[in-house]
Design a protein around this nucleic acid. Structure first.
Lengths: 338, 338
DNA sequence: CTGAAAGCGCTTACAG
DNA sequence: CTGAAAGCGCTTACAG
């Protein structure tokens, strides 16, 4: 390990002051440096293999040019999608990204986000606001701008949301228009009874249509495997499958398709299936999955915009923005198109 | 935005020197501090909402407790899997993670990894070594330990690999044992002719069996869509489909399954399909996908171990480690099991 | 066991 | 246009 070349080394090799070299390298062009000097400095830096120490720069400027992303968990394609989108947005702007998950947080003794100890300029909290508002507040008290993405957010935060309720209505209406009456709703057991848009819309829509709700609560955390098993048990217990299943997310829906196939049930002839989220996978299942597509790319871009704005204008008024979801009607409800 | 509380603020509130407070907070127990004092300091920090400035700590100690991950791209479930695994390993050790991709690098003018400018203690380069050995060397010249994961690595790097060739042999042998003779090989156009284990094994195996290779080179970068389109064009052009298709990765294989379904081709009755990688998705397609599972979790863990070792013992001998792949034979080659 | 001092490597007013 | 100086917020030998 050779010792790293510092700015001082470059300066003394050139017979200049460190401050001069720093200015020559600066992208800020209010620092008037002769082009000739700038060129000389550039050349020497290249020759000596100089690269600025970002940590020192950060300490001096008070900016890290890095943002933090909090997501609920990483073992779920939706959050992997989100992560890759945020990464893309942030990288486009020349910023770095650090990611933390609620899972890791839950296993730590202090139960605070690692973000607290990150060197970041701000935090995007994606779909975690419902669970941990007090922690988000704590982050903010330390002077970190926080943008919340997801259905709920404490009112004092900048907030970007997809219109989940609207999307859920699209899904339910679609199933009803196809003439399905007995419609089941697949969700994780721990989400039963929550005041959550999909839960509410399902209950409301069924009520308005004069139909009996059929809540299919899936135990465990591994969506796909769990719902596959659930359906097997459901049928073996002699219960009659519904005519359609609305799944809280695409992971469940994919597990559902697979579970129904195991049972020899035809989709959508016997049971129609619709998911939620619009992960890339949904277009490549067989049959391909009807779903409600969340505008994830736009949500991420908007969240990054708001974060930047909040950093530049700390006193700007709080923003709440809602973007619509779209129905992608495919084979799992419409049947094979020819 | 309230100004952040600094160590100095806490010290003066307690009438102590900053150095004393620093030691009281230190986890290093060779700094003898009375328990009473430590308690007093802790309480004051909590009361004042003090949290150490990580950037300052990093500058002083010369360690960032963060590692960098380079992957080829993020819009591919395999790399998303890798990223989530590395994240888990690293978070378990209390370290942070920063990710960069070749895509972003390619669009940047200077064409160097962002990692060069990251504040990280070391870098894991996952499946990028083949393309950019000179850049990995440059990272190392700056004093950054680098561990390469993937089929090829410059010999002077610590290196972790899956036995891709062995895995490819498992796949080809499996297809041959099922009696398939006309076996196609799906790969990206730009990988044709590369001296790459899967390419080599495919050619060798077909040669040894006295069979004619059928290389199906897929143009474009969007694996799934591209291969789906390719198969459609293939059949419309009047060409006869092979009896089996070996796909370079699961993304292609999933697109393949979908494309064959579009065409009304039965899998595996008409055409057997086998993938490579073992992403979670492969178990949830219909039919579910036979594939070769890479030991991604173990590869990631081992890479992190080697990185830590290299940091602690810069002069330790170079390590090259190879882990085996496993065949997961499922419906897309075996047919429906009852 | 505690404090005063130096310094990690930069950037940025402030002089000249 | 260039240089000398201060300082970002810590930690760590070095004294006491």
């Amino acid at each position: 390990m050779t010792k790293r070349v510092s700015l001082k080394d470059v300066a003394s090799a050139l017979g200049l002051a460190p401050s001069t070299v720093s200015r020559a390298l600066s992208s800020d062009d209010s620092t008037h440096v002769s082009p000739a000097l700038r060129e000389r400095v550039r050349a020497m830096c290249a020759a000596m293999g100089y690269h600025p120490n970002q940590t020192a720069r950060r300490l001096r400027t008070g900016r890290t040019d890095t943002i933090g992303l909090l997501v609920y968990e990483q073992y779920n394609l939706f959050f992997q999608w989100v992560t890759s989108q945020v990464h893309a947005v942030v990288a486009d702007r020349g910023l770095g990204l650090v990611v933390d998950t609620a899972e890791h947080r839950a296993t730590r003794l202090d139960r605070t986000w690692m973000a607290a100890d990150w060197a970041v300029d701000g935090v995007i909290a994606y779909d975690v606001g419902h669970a941990y508002p007090e922690e988000l507040r704590r982050l903010r008290e330390r002077g970190l701008p926080v943008v919340v993405v997801g259905p709920v957010a404490p009112p004092e935060f900048d907030h970007v949301a997809a219109d989940i309720a609207g999307g859920a209505r699209l899904a339910m209406r679609h199933l009803l228009e196809l003439g399905r009456r007995r419609i089941g709703y697949v969700l994780p057991e721990q989400a039963v009874g929550l005041d959550e848009p999909r839960n509410v819309v399902y209950a409301e829509t069924m009520g308005e249509a004069g139909l009996q709700p059929l809540v299919m609560a899936i135990p465990g955390t591994e969506c796909r495997h769990a719902v596959r098993r659930y359906l097997g048990d459901f049928v073996r217990a002699g219960r009659r499958l519904p005519e359609a299943i609305f799944c809280r997310n695409d992971e469940y829906a994919i597990g559902c398709l697979r579970g129904l196939t195991d049972l020899g049930v035809r989709v959508p002839d016997d049971v129609a299936v619709i998911g939620f989220d619009g992960i890339e996978d949904s277009a490549f299942t067989c049959p391909d999955l009807s779903t409600v597509v969340q505008p994830v790319t736009d949500l991420c871009r908007l969240a990054a915009d708001l974060l930047q704005r909040r950093r530049d204008l700390p006193e700007a008024p709080i923003e709440h923005r809602v973007l619509p979801c779209q129905l992608a009607a495919r084979e799992s409800t419409l049947g094979r198109q020819t």
